[in-house]
Design a protein around this nucleic acid. Structure first.
Lengths: 204, 204
DNA sequence: GCATATTGTCACCACCTGGTGACAATATGC
DNA sequence: GCATATTGTCACCAGGTGGTGACAATATGC
């Protein structure tokens, strides 16, 4: 084996993601990651000061979350933010959350971390919390303050919407039907998007 | 030790709930439950055919879920269903979900199982799924079919509402603030209830 | 060149997990 | 009474976990 600390650190970071994606967060541990990386586990303690440090570094370098561009809609090119602002607010909200659904559902690793969050708080989930918070702030900053007559109500409504998406997307990994809706078929998700859009347009 | 199979089985069932409530589902195992019950673990295999069988029996005898009365509102006595039906549908929905929030938040064991569901499917979570399904059907049966112009939309909206409640209530065990809302204070939950009521009244 | 620090390998530890076979203690059927 | 079945105790197994100390192999500084 070559003696190259940087490369071994990289291998461990990559292996972390591989184990997380392949076996789930419950299998994430020094033994499995070291085995996956083809490296001795003692190096995790030397280079990252333990599993927590490794996970923290992994969180800092990976991107498991959609950027604002993805949420505004891929069809908008050029100055997205400005074009987006031309929509009425309810339409903006509907679009953002429709895109949010697609963004989260297409990221198995993100779904895994969302499930992890429900059970435990660690370096990775904590990191995701701040990312999410920043993204929320960015989105709110796009809104003309004059349009928000009741910010507290708006925060409540958007909290409910994002929460429901997190739940349904994560839950879809273990169940087929929720409230009569098929979470394993695109038709089911279209039904959810339609309801979401209806809520946005009628309530904001 | 007395030789009484029935009592031993009871002790194991009780111990299952105790371990689940005190240490969380990740600690639920033959060793911890047997120790909690003060009984040898081999009896779990003999009497319940393993941990799965024990959990299944535990699921069948415990009640971790609100009944329909609790969701309709405790203030209604006598013929609840009939009194409840006198409300307009949007008001019915708002009330049910407000009560649902209180019902779930007040049951730590239920919150633990909701978190468990996000990670794994087992005898207990499967049992809870059917309970929940039945409850949903009961609630829908209270609605005059003529009032539902778009049942698919209604299913989507109520799915989003219940999903968001499950998520936020479970998530509150690990984080304080979600989307600027304090999940550890009653004021935060009042804000959520207000948003939920707003959605119900404006969209149904 | 050589001493020193870094990188990697390996064996080992204590502890916990699910699971089982052997055996003692008690109850039951006749 | 006695043979049999049931209940409970205990010791043990293989395999997994996180964590560490000892040592060899290589690179670096002078």
């Amino acid at each position: 084996m070559k003696r190259d600390r940087q490369e071994t650190e990289q291998r461990l970071l990559i292996a972390t993601g591989q184990v997380l994606a392949r076996d789930g967060f419950r299998k994430v541990g020094v033994n499995s990651i070291a085995k996956q990386a083809g490296v001795d586990k003692v190096l995790i303690y030397r280079y990252f000061d333990g599993l927590d440090g490794l996970v923290k570094r992994y969180a800092a370098q990976g991107d498991f979350w959609p950027g604002i561009d993805e949420l505004l809609g891929e069809e908008l090119i050029g100055n997205k933010a400005q074009a987006f602002r031309s929509y009425p607010l309810p339409e903006q909200v509907a679009r953002v959350f429709e895109n949010y659904i697609d963004a989260i559902r297409s990221r198995p690793l993100t779904l895994e971390i969302l499930a992890w969050e429900m059970v435990e708080r660690n370096e990775l989930t904590a990191h995701l919390e701040t990312i999410r918070e920043n993204l929320g702030q960015q989105l709110i900053s796009l809104i003309d303050p004059g349009e928000l007559s009741d910010p507290e109500l708006f925060a409540g409504v958007t909290a409910l919407m994002s929460a429901s998406i997190h739940y349904l997307a994560t839950r879809a990994r273990h169940i087929r039907i929720y409230n009569g809706i098929n979470l394993r078929e695109e038709a089911g998700w279209d039904q959810i998007k339609r309801a979401l859009r209806h809520l946005a347009l009628s309530s904001i």
